[in-house]
Amino acid sequence: MNTTRTAWIAVLVGLILVIGVWRAGPPREQPQPGIHVLNEFSSRELSDDKAAAASEGNLVSTETDPLLGLVGEGLNSVDGNAADDVEILTELFHAWQTNFPGQGNPVGLNAEITRALTGQNPLRLELIPPDHPAINETGQLVDRWGTPFEFHQISGAHMEIRSAGPDRVLYTADDVVGNPGPEF
């Protein structure tokens, strides 16, 4: 008698599971564990002017950005400014360190670091989408004026990030610098 009842319960549980999976449909894309969601731009509405500006340069129109929720997704957003961008990149490196504890930041030239941040890493973790508008044709992360960011590697955990600013020349007065390091 007990055996029969146990069998019925098992069949019932199995049916519930099958129905649940059928109703949920195919598995949805989920962010990789450890990714920090920085901003949610999806709910924001862009003015026509900003959308037009976004379509011209390296700015991101959040209306058309399909990859929401990634750490670097808000980079060069028309709603933000260069200081926000540097902050986003800082968060992005923090996210890297969270996912690769003890290994330090990615190193090398801008393009090498960008490759690492866009998924060419042991976890294939995309902290910023490879087709993000802030990545130029040579694979470098560029600021909102189109100049490649300077990633000054102070130590494994300390990355000074520099945008050349509106004059597009590094190390001038209008540079925007995040995490300034000591002078060597």
Partner: peptide, 9 residues
């Protein structure tokens, strides 16, 4: 070498 191109390292 770990952290090539990083000053401190």
């Amino acid at each position: 070498p770990p952290q090539l191109f990083s000053h401190n390292d």
